[in-house]
Design a protein around this nucleic acid. Sequence first.
DNA 1: ATACAACCTAAACCTAAGTTGAGGTCAAGG
DNA 2: CCTTGACCTCAACTTAGGTTTAGGTTGTAT
Lengths: 120, 120
Amino acid sequence: MNYTIGQVAKINHLSISQLRYYDNQGLFPFLKRTEKGDRVFDEDALKFLEIILCLKNTGMPIKDIKQFVDWSMTGEDTLPQRLEMMKQQEIKVLHQIRDTEENLTKIQQKIARLEREMKK
Amino acid sequence: MNYTIGQVAKINHLSISQLRYYDNQGLFPFLKRTEKGDRVFDEDALKFLEIILCLKNTGMPIKDIKQFVDWSMTGEDTLPQRLEMMKQQEIKVLHQIRDTEENLTKIQQKIARLEREMKK
DNA sequence: ATACAACCTAAACCTAAGTTGAGGTCAAGG
DNA sequence: CCTTGACCTCAACTTAGGTTTAGGTTGTAT
């Protein structure tokens, strides 16, 4: 099954211009085009997009994602680099979660304090 | 105990210019100054900074934080608004954590796939 | 035929969150 | 004295991550 840019945007809750911007930044080197020039996302492209968004949503800058994408296109030689990058990202995300949980606790304490103040 | 901007920067792992920028954005209306004009952070300021950073680190934009700070300076009339804002933020952070955990899982699956590919 | 919807490009524009640089004040130490 | 370090202001600059605009093509429905 193939998808247009508009469909992909809806599926992933992105804007069309965002997808075009990512393409221009080199994040979709695997994208095909129709004869008239429209971008075509196939199932593989959607699969790949998923991991790209995953990296983006955990705070990886676009140029680093591009590095990963470029490595992915070069073949098996770069498997070690890609693995290393994902492991680094895993560590980063684990820290993110811990930090965010700490901040959650602080916010909840603030809520409790505010509620106590309001009752007085 | 009082602290200079440099000390506060070190304690909280921020740059001095970041702290000055926040002050210019109106995030520190409670800040005192020495006669020569240097910013003085007292214990209360540090306490307040902690909650400000907590909001900032969970993705709240500076102008929203300023709203919260402004409310905090006005007295008890704004307790309900502040409470509501913190509750909204709590919800946002809970979602953040869930989303990040999902992304973590995907990254870990990617790691597993890459490791399988490398063994072949 | 024509109008509309969905796609395209290239370039300009925008916003948030800072950083940098020039020029200045003050206190302490050698 | 004078230099060094830590602070100050104000304005200009930067960067990332987009959005917007203007102008153009194509396919389908009226």
